[in-house]
Amino acid sequence: MPAPAGDSASAPPLLEVRNLSVSFPMSRGLFGPKRVLQAVRGISFTVGRGRTLGLVGESGSGKTTAAMAAIRLVTPSDGQVLLEGRDLMALDERAMRAERRHLAVIFQDPYSSLNPRNRVGAIVREPLDLMGIGSPGERESRVRELFRLVGLRPDQMALFPHQFSGGQRQRIAIARALATNPALIVCDEPVSALDVAIQAQILNLLRRLQDDLGLSYLFISHDLGVVQHVCHEVAVMYLGQVVEQADRRRLFTAPAHPYTRALLESAPALDRRKSAGYRRKAAVEGDPPSPLAIPAGCAFAGRCPQAQARCRTEEPEQTVRDGHLVRCHFPLG
């Protein structure tokens, strides 16, 4: 029962995440000291109905963990998640199962996310079976409808995953995600494994489905070009924190965090030509610090071209101006 887009101003946003943290305990040998990996460190965001929030950041920055915690597929160590105002963390297992039909996930790898031994029709139908939605006949016709919706032919329902190309498998994964008519779909790098030509087909499909069904997406990607094309708002993650968050226009035209700017400068572009003497200088050096040993001060200080002494000792607080969130002592522009 996804609420129609264009809800009234008083209605709560579809998804609201407050101060979410996730840590993983790490054992270091039998007698080593107990260590904790802080994958997500107190992040907050909202996803509106019919909207797409992008999560970007380097590998290991906590995008997947944050998104999975937001739909309770990973247990947060702290924080609150509200789905249409309902506190998901307060629900017992049974009540949470009932909420599952409003939530779905599409993963990066269309090869490993589909069970190779099942026919694709059964794969798409599975969420309906698991949640006991509809009669067998209704489920069958729903699967047919889903196949058409994602651009597959219903006569392909009896085939196995290996008989499909990567792009078609991602269509199958999308059909499956849509089965229970969810309100929110977490898309975790849904096009990263695909060639650009197929990527364009899938991105257009996701946008069309959003328009037609009023879906909301939490969209994880490390490709800023992709993010620009599908996201309304963007949150940039670094070492488990959101360091900048803004609507698409502001993030791409007036980035305020040095890390966001580095990401934009690092992105390849057709008009940056070798023939014109263009030489992409690495905008940041080295790798991010380990989430097992979070540095004091700003987590980006070791790589930040703007870093000053204060950055290494004092952790920047987040500031929000006109809905543009930045976590930096010396924001740009």
Partner: peptide
């Protein structure tokens, strides 16, 4: 079909769909 980073596009309320190779 490349989703190019483009401030002019980013400033639009609604981006046009990407070109596709069928």
């Amino acid at each position: 079909c490349i989703p190019a980073i483009d401030p002019a596009l980013a400033a639009l309320d609604r981006l046009p769909p990407l070109a596709e190779i069928p």
